[in-house]
């Protein structure tokens, strides 16, 4: 019983991020897609995420598209689209924050 959460907005959308973070439970995973990839380049956000007992993922296509690969402050796992599918299978449901 664990959830894969996806979020697709940069941390500038503070309300969305706070709602998403409040919903995380131990064992869940957070996949930051589209503009949420910018979060991985912001130390304050990544520090906050360390307080949660969850795995954090980024899509390589989104990271590369935005020129972020050299700017990541994080130990987030960078995955490809196939691994996104695998994650969706490993967790019992997918919840999308947008």
């Amino acid at each position: 019983m664990s959830t894969l959460h996806t979020i697709n907005k940069s941390p500038s959308d503070n309300t969305l991020w706070q709602s998403c973070l409040a919903a995380l439970l131990p064992g869940d995973a957070l996949l930051m897609i589209e503009n949420a990839a910018y979060a991985a380049a912001q130390p304050s956000v990544m520090t906050q995420l360390q307080e949660y007992d969850i795995d954090i993922y980024l899509l390589s296509a989104d990271v590369d598209a935005r020129g972020l690969s050299g700017k990541l402050y994080t130990n987030a796992n960078i995955i490809d689209d196939q691994q996104f599918v695998t994650l969706a299978c490993q967790h019992t449901k997918v919840v999308s924050w947008f």
Partner: peptide
């Protein structure tokens, strides 16, 4: 709310 999300089949 976090527990409700966990406990429903589809969210």
């Amino acid at each position: 709310i976090a527990l409700m999300i966990r406990d429903h089949d589809v969210v």
